[in-house]
C-alpha cells in the first residue's frame, strides 16, 4: 500500500478512484505523563511523552485508514490529510483521511519513455 499526501504518485498512473478512506483515534494522556509534563511546563522544552503519544495516535489512525483502503481493494491512498480536535478535556482525536485509488501496473522506465508519460 502506497500512502502519499500528494494527488499523484511519480511514475504511477491512477486508474480508478475508490473513495474516501478514514481512520481516527481518540487518546487520552495518562497521569504519569501529565506529572512529567507539569514539571516540564515550568522550565520549558520538549514534552517527549506527549510527542510519543502523538506518534502513537498518528500511527494508529493511519493504520485504520489503510485497513479501510485494503477493504476497498485499493493500491494506494493519496492526498492524505490530518486533523485534530479536542473531544473532551484531557483527550484528543487525531483523524487521518485520504482518497483510496487503484493504480495501473508498474511500467518499466523504457515503456514510460516510449509512451511519453
Amino acid at each position: 500500500m502506497i500512502v502519499v499526501n500528494t494527488e499523484t504518485i511519480p511514475g504511477r498512473e491512477i486508474t480508478a478512484i475508490l473513495g474516501l478512506v478514514q481512520g481516527n483515534t481518540v487518546r487520552s494522556k495518562n497521569v504519569g505523563r501529565d506529572i512529567a509534563a507539569g514539571f516540564k511546563n515550568m522550565v520549558g522544552g520538549e514534552l517527549k511523552g506527549y510527542t510519543q503519544l502523538l506518534v502513537e495516535s498518528r500511527r494508529q489512525s493511519v493504520e485504520r485508514m489503510i485497513a479501510q483502503g485494503n477493504e476497498l481493494g485499493a493500491d494506494a491512498v493519496v492526498n492524505v490529510r490530518f486533523t485534530t480536535s479536542a473531544v473532551t478535556s484531557g483527550a484528543a482525536e487525531l483523524y487521518a483521511y485520504g482518497t483510496a485509488v487503484k493504480l495501473a501496473a508498474v511500467e518499466s522506465p523504457a515503456m514510460t519513455e516510449m509512451t511519453g508519460a
Binding site: I2, G44, E46, V80
Partner: peptide, 12 residues
C-alpha cells in the same frame, strides 16, 4: 516511488 513521511513535536 514515494512515501508519506511525518514529523511530530510537542514543546512547552
Amino acid at each position: 516511488g514515494s512515501e508519506m513521511v511525518i514529523g511530530e513535536c510537542v514543546i512547552a
